[in-house]
């Protein structure tokens, strides 16, 4: 039993090293996108007065849908580049769950393949449940 446990731990640790890399890349990507978009945004609007953040109006479809954000990125719109960075940031932990799923498949751990699938389903429901594509 103890040997089995330590073997599992090893597999976990190997995959975890990979996951560590993934997290770093995800975070760096998000940061670079936010930085590029941010600098462009400041060059365009830096001297304007701050928008009325005290009154909540909500953002339009160009910032809240995948299609809207992607369209803006393709036309090099600063705000949408930032939102694309936001998407990269949100996607990072979700990818981490996906990686764990592969790790459990490699280990043939049926129970945890099931549990990870449940978590992914909840995440997908949240992503596509209210999505206005």
């Amino acid at each position: 039993m103890k040997k089995l446990l330590s073997k599992n731990l090893w597999n976990d640790t190997d995959v975890e090293q990979l996951v560590g890399q993934l997290l770093r890349y995800g975070v760096i990507t998000a940061c670079i996108l936010a930085l590029i978009g941010g600098i462009a945004y400041l060059t365009e609007h830096g001297s304007n007065p701050v928008p009325q953040y005290g009154i909540f109006t909500g953002e339009g479809a160009e910032y809240t849908t995948f299609k809207g954000i992607l369209n803006g990125v393709l036309t090099l719109n600063p705000n949408e580049i930032i939102q694309f960075g936001v998407l990269a940031l949100i996607a990072t932990p979700i990818l981490r769950v996906l990686f764990s799923l592969f790790a459990f498949i490699l280990e043939k751990d049926k129970l945890y393949i099931g549990i990870t699938l449940i978590v992914l389903c909840i995440l997908m429901t949240s992503i596509f449940g209210g999505l206005k594509v």
């Binding site: 975070v27 940061c31 809240t64 705000n79 930032i82 979700i94």
Partner: peptide, 30 residues
């Protein structure tokens, strides 16, 4: 991270995430 991502997508779609606030927060916090 996973928990926050689950609700962040809902908030993003609802228009709670403003790019002008988001980018200094992401860079600064990281």
């Amino acid at each position: 991270g996973v928990t926050a991502a689950a609700s962040a997508v809902v908030y993003l779609q609802r228009g709670y995430i403003d790019p002008g606030i988001a980018f200094p927060v992401i860079i600064g916090v990281l």
